[in-house]
Each structure stands twice: as C-alpha cells, then as structure tokens.
Simulated assay, not measured.
Amino acid sequence: MLGTAADLHRWCAAGRPFAVATVVAVSGSAPRPPGAALAVDADGTAVGSVSGGCVEADVYLLCQEVLAAGEGAPPLLRRYGYSDDDAFAVGLTCGGELDVLVQRVDPAARPELAAAFAAFAAGEVAALTRVVAGPAGLLGRALLVRPDLRCEGGLGDARLDAAAAERTRALLAAGRTGTFVIGADGSHCGEPLTLLAESHAAPPRLLVFGACDFAAALVPAASLLGYRVTVCDARPAFTTPRRFPGADEVVVDRPDRYLGAEAAAGRLDARTAVCVLTHDARFDVPVLARALRLPLGYVGAMGSRRTHADRTARLRAAGVPAAALARLRSPIGLDLGARTPQETALSITAEILACRTGAPGTPLTGASAPIHAPGGEPRSPAADRACPHGVLP
C-alpha cells in the first residue's frame, strides 16, 4: 500500500471509509509484487493498481462489495489466475497467479492503519504487518512496527505481536516488503499464520566518487531507481551543486576519508552502492580498498581492462584479500555498447539493479525461466553468484 499511502492518509484525515485491495502473494509472471494495492472510497474514486489492468475491474467491484457490507465487514481473499477454458474469464493473461486481500477501512475503528498511512505519507521509517492467511478471525489484523520495535495495533495475542514485530523489523532493516509464516500463537509450530510486512525504509544510498561527466549522467539515472545520491570528489572546482543539480549531496573531500566517516557513523548498509569514477589511482585505490571491506551491496569502478589490471595489482599490494577483490565490478556496468555518459549511466544502473535483484542481466528473448522471481524475492542462487557480499576482514 506504500504507493497509495498519501491518498489513503487524506481519506483517513477526512474520516472517509474506503476499501483497499492488496496483493498478498504471487506466483509465475504476475505483473505486480506483494504490497501492490488498489483502494476505492465510498464515492467510487480509485487509486493504485493490483495488476496493471488484467483484473482491476473485478477487484474494483470487490472493493465496492466490501464497502457496501458496512462497518465490520470481514475481509475477502480472492485468487486470480489464467483460464484457458474461458477467454473472457477474469484472470491474468500473463499466466501467473496472485492472491488479493480486500478489506474495509473505517479510520476511527482502525487507528493503526490510519497511523501507518500517515507515517508512510510523511516518509517515516516504519512497516505495516497484516495477517493475510490463517484463521478467519485474524485475517486483516494489523501491526504498525517502528525500527525501535514500538508498535501500534495488534494481532490478537501478545506473544504473536512480539514474534511478528521481530520478524518485521528484520525486513524493515533490509528495506524489503515480503511475507513470513509463524504459528498463530507466535511460536514456530501450531496453526500456521502468514503475514505480509510492507516496509517503508530510508532510500538506499549511491555514493559516486569522481566529479566527471559520467557522474553527472549517473545522478538522475540512479535517482529514478530511488537512490539517495551523493557525489564526492577532492577537487572543489569540479565538485559543485551547480554541476550536479540532481544530487542529494555534493561533498568536497577525499573519497576514502568520506567513505570511512560515513561507515563509522553507521550511514552505510547492505543496500548501499559505490561507484568509483575517478580514473586516478591516487584516489580510487584507497577508496576501493576501504569499500571492498565493507558490507555494501555493490562496488564498481570505471576504467579500461588495462586500468582494471593495474588497479587490481595495486589493491593486492595494499593488502586487499582475494575474496574482497572478487566483489569488485570492473570495468563497471553491463555490456550494452555504451559510449556516451548517458548510455554509460544506463549500463551502470542496469548492473546495480541486476546485482540488487540477483538477475543475470541477459536478454529475456529466448529464455525459459520465469520473468519474475516467485513472490518478488531476489533470485538467490544467481544473486550469490552475481554479487557476493558480506563483512570482510
């Protein structure tokens, strides 16, 4: 529901009841991931989407049905898939399946949902966890979880709340939306209960070292992917906000010193990407030696294959272990035939995205594997091959 939070917050503030349909599970090539939502108010106004068009009309009618049932109406859970028997049946033409939970929201009766929409609309770090499968009496119950484990709402049992909050906090720390299963009493046994946690985390960071034309093209490209972008270079004449108007931060400092300070302050994590575009061994070797020892999601460096070989030798001489060197993406980017700064920015962001999702970065034409990973999860085996990361010595 993150994409519709601003509208839902306004509806709650006005005291308007509405119904919200949320994708809670997907399989195959379903068009939208878990958390995608369509909301409809009593006037028939609709915001959001659950499928990009395939089943919107039927889900809209379900929302109206739940609204017409009045306050306290139980949630509905509906599965949509592809039907070969009836070309006009409501279903997904892509061949996938998705489960949609439709529930009525009366703002005064669901303060935890109103608080979640307000938090998401304000950009706060928080996660909303709801019961999406299990005993009928628990379906749709919600818990708003903050990073410090402060919670609002409840799932019906203190042990269940505590277990759900711990699992939710782990997803929130990773900036992920996803489902998990626990026992209905909060244990790992007993009747299974499936919960969907929707995380609104701080945006991931991209640190671009090197105030060059390629960096200027990379800033807006990375911003489109939702990254908070910092450009850092030791040369004040080139490192100015005027040259990088789309950057969130422009910093004049030695790259290795700035990276070390950010790591010490706890402002880097496994979602952070680092792109070194300096073309100068005096700057790129020290910052890469530090970056490759941090648990970052992506570390790439620009340069020719000859530059890469020279840089690798220098990093080895600086004591960077082989396991750390294996994480370096150099020459940076996917092979798209890029030449201009703009084309190169596309190549770099494509590789960052592939590394983040675990996709191989190969053409979809002629491939037989599913386009979307099950449940929207990263493709773990490929992810391990494509971008191994972890705390290194």
Rank of each mutant, 00 (worst) to 15 (best):
111 P>H: 07
73 A>Q: 00
392 L>S: 08
165 A>H: 11
187 S>R: 12
277 L>I: 06
65 E>T: 06
261 A>P: 04
83 S>H: 10
103 Q>M: 13
295 P>E: 08
185 D>K: 14
292 L>H: 10
276 V>F: 11
48 G>I: 00
298 Y>G: 09
134 G>E: 11
173 A>F: 06
37 A>F: 04
165 A>P: 09
356 R>D: 15
237 A>F: 06
61 L>A: 13
156 G>W: 02
216 A>H: 04
257 R>M: 07
74 P>D: 13
161 D>G: 05
275 C>K: 09
58 D>I: 09
18 F>V: 08
185 D>L: 06
388 P>Y: 02
152 E>T: 05
138 L>E: 00
109 A>M: 00
73 A>E: 05
91 G>L: 11
112 E>I: 01
71 E>P: 07
84 D>G: 07
303 G>L: 12
86 D>G: 02
45 T>S: 14
189 C>M: 09
73 A>W: 02
303 G>A: 09
235 R>E: 13
187 S>K: 04
255 P>C: 04
228 R>D: 08
166 E>F: 09
259 L>E: 02
383 A>N: 08
272 T>K: 06
356 R>C: 10
22 T>I: 07
375 G>Y: 02
311 R>S: 05
226 G>Q: 11
155 L>S: 00
387 C>S: 15
247 A>V: 11
69 A>H: 08
78 R>T: 09
53 G>I: 03
152 E>G: 06
265 A>L: 12
134 G>D: 12
52 G>W: 07
371 I>L: 14
157 D>L: 02
354 A>W: 07
254 R>V: 09
276 V>A: 12
190 G>L: 13
169 R>D: 04
35 G>W: 09
66 V>M: 00
250 V>S: 11
358 G>F: 03
133 A>C: 03
273 A>M: 02
174 A>E: 14
45 T>H: 13
261 A>L: 02
282 R>T: 08
126 A>W: 03
8 L>V: 06
268 L>S: 02
251 V>F: 09
321 P>L: 15
152 E>F: 01
266 G>H: 08
374 P>E: 00
42 A>W: 00
170 A>H: 12
262 E>I: 04
344 T>D: 15
